[in-house]
Every structure is written in structure tokens, then in C-alpha cells.
Design a protein around this nucleic acid. Structure first.
Lengths: 359, 359
DNA sequence: GTCATATTTTTACGCGCGTCAAAATCATGA
DNA sequence: TCATGATTTTGACGCGCGTAAAAATATGAC
């Protein structure tokens, strides 16, 4: 205690007496341990006068309940696992932030892990969640090559909801919450066709289901609008999650050959579009005036937080990240409360057009 | 079991028999529970033949040890808490990714939380780490208005190492790992002076210690090089962590008044620089040629993952994120092993010049 | 085959708290 | 003041595993 003051040197700061166990606390506070236990679980579960008394004494001491131990015997740990392919992707970062927010509101604690785009790491992360007895998990899957057994085993233990992209076919049937690619891609294709040349499509590396789904949605919408669909064939390998580098490399190559320099290019996501814009700027395709000078237009998908700071500002469709996070948490909470036996749920949210400068 | 196959529909997938407790496992595997316990702690702590036997049988069953329970009685939980102000900042995202990596290598599990730039949330996060009995915590502090008591109490329980920015003065004495702002800012100021006009400084909102430190380092270096230091006075309030918006607003305002349009501007971090570049582009200050046309130059600090995709590509200094993460984890591991009593350690790493197009 | 040493098994207790049942105490209204 | 339902206290057991000590067994050199 004296140490504290000496160490922090802030006058007036008096360290409260440290209490380590609930038993100890019950003695210094003057109520029985079971009553305390009930209080912590739900303050209104004890008589108001008792509740008030505990609350007051509690503020005078330094006691933190043991998280690990309390979770050990409860039927519910109130832990929710989250697995994303990468932290260094602002879309996932936004998602995690929203998930943490929604979870906090419901009293859940989030355990976040990155799979680093590696199926082995992803499987280990799932296993760790199992060993932590989480009440549920939200997974933005890698997709290709996922460890089926790990997920299957996990889904025996707790509800699993996939977000962002659906697990590849035949993996397992599980809940899903994400953007309706048909709607989102449809909206931006419609916008692009209405405001200029019909777009060609620059896909993303086939790392997850969105790659296929978005290209498919693009083709469908183009067909509906009576335009020829055309996807740019990447001249570079795209096996990694470095989307900007991918978009840049592919378009730098095209523009170098003077291909697509006057086209409208719809990219499968904003990160690819950011790379493509960089390539376009390098080749001077956007240099006249602030807005697109020639016929070149580039559009994206997601509404990445930095898209509006690109030059030109990226026209895109905004995924409802908060909506996805909230729906996922709600779904898990519901399942955890007993709804395990219901049918698989798939929630598709709409995305909103964000017309800006680039298209 | 039959359920599994039916549910996942993958032929050939046989669910392994599920084992729930270690006692149960010891029976089906044919060794005593204490021996198993020792094996899980360190496979080489048992006789090779026993180790091999356990390993083999283990692969035939589905057993995951109970994470919560195992941590309960160990002297060490092998949990490390991480608190950052925001996930939606690629610098912190990179940091978390590196920390998770380094931690994994040493067998630690990371508990990440975002303080959302809110001191109340930050204090709660610290409290939660206390209740989880973490072995240590890595905190990128908010700085202003931090809850002293929460940190003081926490540092009584486990070693705390601050990263990125030092806690504001008089908060508490604790370990720190981060970039040597004097070196990093010095390097880029030197570079800028050598290659063009001496820079003016666009600071960051005073949310943490880096704000002051970097401006101070800038002034010191300018003095050393016999140049007049000058900081841009933000015409807008900058109380949030939306750095791009801040940089954009401040410079849009300046450029609108035709101020600093031919200057060299050193931004306190890349996110501010990204906003500033956007403003410059909006005002057509970068439009001639691919590279800076007029005299305007903009530089940043950090080497944000997207800096190279800006147009023009941002000249900056790269923080050694991996080095910071690794040093922080190492420091914590060392403290956890008993080095609690040693003196406070401050590790300053160097940053590397990343000359690109913008300056 | 024998003995000293290395491992494993037995046995038992503890961690901090959830939880249950029975006994004791409190609150309230007649 | 007493009855009675609501709360709290007592006392006790369990969770899954860490861990320590003593007894039993396996290993390896001779």
C-alpha cells in the first residue's frame, strides 16, 4: 500500500484495501458468501437493503471477482469467440469493433483471434475456443481448405455463426449473417450502367465464397440489363490477402498495355479498388482535373473506412457492418438461450450505394 | 455422432469419440491423471515411450482440455492482455497482429480489447484483465484523462508495458516500448531539409504523449539544422481519433486560403497525412504529373500499410512494429518469470526512412 | 538376476466460486 | 405480539485440474 503511493507519486491517492476472495469479501462486508454470489449474478436478486449495503461497502474495497473461476461452473461462460482472417483489413477491424460493442451491451466478453489467412491457424483458433468453453463463435472464414473436422467438432459444442462470407459448400450447415451480394453488386452495377459505360469486373483471389458470389452477381445483373459481362483475367497470381497489391499489380499490367484505360471497372472489394486506383494514377489516367478525366471509372465494394480519402474518392457500396455485427450477436445469444434446435438461419443485409468521385 | 455425419454430409468423416475430462481420458488412454497432467504441461517431462503412447491415443479421440480450469490453479495463466484505442487504425491492427504472433510463439494467449478512445472503457478493460488474472498486459494508452487508479491497481497484480505512446506524466512508472520519436522525426526532418524546403509541422490532436513528443522532436531537429520551426495551427477541433478527417479538415481549410500550398508539411502520423493528401488533391495541388508538381510536399510518420497506395505515395518513416511487439512480449515474459523487482525498462526502437513520392 | 534410479500410480488436498438444502432470521400485516 | 412468507446464513458438495507425497513399478547398468 505504501508502495503504491511511493510508486505512483500521486498525492491524495489512497489505495483501497485489497480483497482477494469472495469469502474474504463476505467477511469484511458482513454478508454470507452465497448472498454475495447471488448479488454478483443479479443485484436485484437480493433484498434492496442488502443490495445497497453490498454496493456501498464494495466501493470502499478493491475486489475483482475471479473471471476464470466464475466461468468454470456456470452453465454459461458468457464468452464469445471471434475469428477473422486478418486484423490488418479495415473491414474486419470495423466488424470486430461493432461486435465488441454489441457484445458488451449484452454482457458478453469477446475473445478475438486472427487466422492470418492460414487454415491451420484457423483450426487452432477454433480448437482454442472449444477449450475455452465459449458460448458461441463468430467466424469470418478463410474458405478454401478449411479444416472441416475442427468446425464440425466445434459446432457440436456451441453455436457457430459465419459472417462476411459463407463457408465453402459441403463444409457444414451453419448460421450465416452477411451482405446480400446479389443486392449489393446489383445496386452498383445498375448505378454504373445508368451513369456511364457498363462495368467490367475485377474479381478477387478465390479465398472465400464472396469471390464467386460477387462475380456471379455481377454476371447476373449484367445479363438482366442486357450488357455483356466481362471479367478481367488477372495476369498475376492472387493467392494472398494482400488485396491492394493484387489490384495494383493486375491493373498496372493492364494499363501498361493500354487496356481498360477508358473502361468502367468494378472491383470485388475496396481494397482491390484502392490498388487499382493507385495503378490508374501511376499511369496518369486520373490526372486531368479532380474527377476522372478520361473515360476510366473505378468502383469498389464494402465502403472501406479509407475509401473516401482516395483520390478520386472511391465510389462503392457500403456493407452494413453494424447490422451484421448486431445480427450475429443476437443470433448467438438466442441460440445460447436454448434455440439450438431451430433451423439454420441465414441473414442477408442490404448494402447502400455510396456514389463518390471515382465512378 | 450419427448426427454429425448427417449434419455435415461429408462421407468418410468419422467423428472421434468425445472425451470430456482428463480423468475420463486417463482411463481410456491407460495412464494416470497426474501423468497426463504432466504430459500436457511438457511432453518431455514423461518417459519417451509414455509420451509416444499418449500422443498416439490422443489423436484417436476428441479431447480438448478445459482452458478455464487449467488456468485456475496454475501459478501462471499464460494470458496476456492487450488494449488499444481502436481496431480501426491499421497501425494498431499491425501491432496486434505482431503481438499475437510473438505471443503464440511463446505459448501465450492474447486477450484483446479496444478502449474506443474512451478512458472509461479503457479502465473497464484494465479491470477485466485483472479479473482474468493475466500474466501481463500491453497497453497502447489513450493518455489524456486515463484512470490512474485502475492502472495502479493493475500494476500491483501483473506487469504492465505501455507501447506506442507513454502514459502521460505523473500517471505511473511502468515499462515502455516504442519508437524513439527523436530519432524517427529527426530522420525525416533531416531528409526533408536535405531534399527541399524545411518542413512545417502538422501535429495531431493531443490525445496521447506522442502528440507532444513528436512536435518537440520536430522543433529540436529544426533548431539543430538552423531552420525556423513552425506548426500549423489547426482551425478545427481535433478531439477524436479520426485522424484522416482531422488532417483533411485542417489542410482543406489552409489550402482554401492558399496557405501552405507550396510548403513541405510533416504530419505527426500517416493517417493525418492521408487526410492532408486528400485535401491537396482536392485543391489540385498534386495534379501535374505523377509526382508532386508544385512545391507542395507532404510526409508522414508510421508507415501505415496503405501509405504506399496513396497518390502520391506517402513518404514516411516506418515504425518497427514487429520489433515493438516482440520487445513488449519478451519484456512481459521476463517480468513474469520473476524479474518484477528490476528497474523500469524503456525500450526505444528506431524507425526507418521510407522515401516515396510525396516528398 | 540384482540393485539403484527414473517414472508412474495412488491418494489426497486445494483453488475460488456455483449451487443446493436445511436452519435461522427477518420483514410485514393482522 | 404472533404468524407467515421472504431472505439470509450455514454447511456441504462439486467443478476439472494442479500438485505434492508416498508407494509401487519399470528401466538399465552391472
Amino acid at each position: 500500500m505504501g508502495q503504491v503511493c511511493a510508486m505512483y507519486g500521486v498525492p491524495g491517492t489512497m489505495a483501497k484495501p485489497r480483497i482477494n476472495t469472495m469469502k474474504e469479501l463476505s467477511e469484511t462486508i458482513g454478508v454470507s458468501r452465497p448472498t454475495l454470489s447471488r448479488y454478483f449474478r443479479d443485484p436485484s436478486a437480493v433484498r434492496p437493503s442488502t443490495s445497497k449495503k453490498i454496493q456501498e461497502r464494495l466501493s470502499e474495497v478493491d475486489y475483482v471477482y475471479n473471471f476464470l473461476t466464475t466461468r468454470q461452473n456456470r452453465k454459461s461462460t458468457e464468452l464469445i469467440g471471434v475469428i477473422v482472417p486478418s486484423y490488418k483489413d479495415l473491414f474486419f477491424a470495423s466488424l470486430i469493433e461493432s461486435i465488441e460493442q454489441s457484445a458488451r451491451d449484452l454482457g458478453y466478453t469477446i475473445i478475438t483471434q486472427s487466422s492470418n489467412g492460414d487454415t491451420g491457424v484457423e483450426a487452432n483458433a477454433v480448437r482454442k475456443l472449444r477449450s475455452m468453453s465459449v458460448d458461441g463463435a463468430i467466424v469470418a472464414p478463410i474458405g478454401v481448405g478449411a479444416d472441416h473436422d475442427a468446425f464440425a467438432a466445434a459446432s457440436e459444442d456451441f453455436p457457430l455463426v459465419f459472417v462476411d462470407s459463407r463457408p465453402v459448400r459441403s463444409m457444414l450447415v451453419a448460421d450465416f449473417v452477411g451482405t446480400d451480394n446479389t443486392q449489393s453488386i446489383g445496386a452498383i452495377v445498375e448505378y454504373l450502367c445508368r451513369t456511364g459505360d457498363p462495368p467490367v469486373f475485377l474479381g478477387m483471389p478465390h479465398l472465400n465464397a464472396n469471390a464467386e458470389e460477387r462475380e456471379h452477381a455481377y454476371r447476373a445483373k449484367m445479363l438482366e440489363l442486357n450488357h455483356d459481362a466481362k471479367a478481367i483475367e488477372p495476369a498475376v497470381a492472387g493467392g494472398s490477402w494482400e488485396f491492394e497489391a493484387f489490384g495494383y499489380a493486375v491493373m498496372d499490367d493492364c494499363f501498361g498495355r493500354r487496356e481498360f484505360t477508358n473502361s468502367t471497372i468494378l472491383c470485388a472489394n475496396d481494397r482491390i479498388a484502392i490498388g487499382a486506383i493507385r495503378a490508374a494514377n501511376k499511369h496518369g489516367l486520373f490526372s486531368r482535373g479532380g474527377i476522372a478525366g478520361g473515360g476510366l471509372r473505378i468502383a469498389g465494394h464494402d465502403d472501406h473506412p479509407l475509401s473516401q480519402y482516395m483520390f478520386p474518392a472511391l465510389t462503392t457500396v457500403a456493407q452494413d457492418v453494424e447490422g451484421i455485427a448486431d445480427a450475429a450477436i443476437q443470433l448467438l445469444a438466442q441460440r445460447a438461450r436454448g434455440g439450438r434446435s431451430t433451423e439454420t438461419v441465414e441473414v442477408f443485409l442490404n448494402a447502400a450505394m455510396m456514389p463518390r468521385e471515382s465512378a
